[in-house]
Write a protein that binds this DNA or RNA. Sequence first.
DNA 1: ACAAAAGTGTTCGCAATACACCCATGG
DNA 2: CCATGGGTGTATTGCGAACACTTTTGT
Lengths: 218, 218
Amino acid sequence: MLSFFTVDCVIFTFHEGALKILLAERNEYPYKDWWALPGFFVEKEEEMEDAVKRISYEHTGLKDIYLEQLAAFAGLKRHPEGRVLTVAYMALVRYEDVKNKIKPVTNYMKQVKWFDVSKMPALAFDHGNILSLSLRKFKTSLHYSLAPFELLPEKFTLTQLQQVYEAILGEPLDKRNFRKRISNLGYLKELNEFQTGVSYRAARLYKLDKRKFQKLFS
Amino acid sequence: MLSFFTVDCVIFTFHEGALKILLAERNEYPYKDWWALPGFFVEKEEEMEDAVKRISYEHTGLKDIYLEQLAAFAGLKRHPEGRVLTVAYMALVRYEDVKNKIKPVTNYMKQVKWFDVSKMPALAFDHGNILSLSLRKFKTSLHYSLAPFELLPEKFTLTQLQQVYEAILGEPLDKRNFRKRISNLGYLKELNEFQTGVSYRAARLYKLDKRKFQKLFS
DNA sequence: ACAAAAGTGTTCGCAATACACCCATGG
DNA sequence: CCATGGGTGTATTGCGAACACTTTTGT
């Protein structure tokens, strides 16, 4: 028998060479004025994953985003008013798709904002734990995961892809080794298109070949 | 707002060269006479992990076993009487510790039994999903995990360890390569003790050096 | 011409793989 | 002496890591 059931979302994006997470500033007790992960109650007749989609949509204006369940948190003391079980999800969005759309959903929140992963404030409830779990999981599954491509536009440069990897791992990678490894894996399609609007040599664009990727990590 | 909250346990052990899972035969509708994962309701004032420990203890007579959370399942249709949210855990026990202790807990169950992982019956509810998720996770985390050692006695032979790996991966491994790899990792302590009671050359016993293991995968 | 980032090869060491025979022990 | 599993070495190959310079383009 359980009192409350919520979902919380760690929504990642990638912008200006950095991994960012969407946080909401609370306007209600407990933890008024603290930053927290976007989350809300799951409705009585609502599927859990639909609740996650609803919440992500309300905050970012996007549907059909990449979702992955992280874990359930059910500590009796995680909320002062008794057990609130939450299931945490990780969501990935493309910055280009979302940039002017983020907004607070209810007046429970004052504002929402992207935070650089390396400059996170203290978080309400146990959201700090959820966050660090999500980062750890992100790192360890990186090499078999479509996740990096969910953070980039459909067509991207190898440097952008490398920056995503570096942001997730939190460490720099060697350019030549990175390109060699990725191209050996063979799931990138080289396009005959190039960057535009840069004041230096334009980089070639690539696309993910999902078929080949799936074949590799079935 | 949620009606019911349960935990389900995928309890693994290792015996006679095979990976086994503990199942309970239901004696109540729905799914009367079906086999299911051991699980039960989480009490109102009980921590989720304590509920898992309680249920494992009641079935196996063991305390302080290895536990790991797998995932939450909350589908509205997973139980005919409405949403029953369950959090699935994986538990590992040593067969020697548990062999004559397993028993059904309530008269909701007719019997409990170890099933060879390669010969599982159809399972009640969505327990088949839970099971296959646990096996996949077990495999992928194997090389950085203490799990194999939680299935073996404190002192074990290299052949036993190899059999555990083979049972989890579901494929045979080369003896020389396995031993070379394991001994390069350097977290096994070679003992000056040997198997007894076998009618062939007695194998050397080894122990895990947890310190070195932790240092390696911090 | 300069600034900025794109793009490109080689060497080295380690780890994974494939593979087969002799040894020790108890019965 | 036989059955059973214990224990051992080598050659090959592929992958990750270290490392620096030339090319292209726009201004």
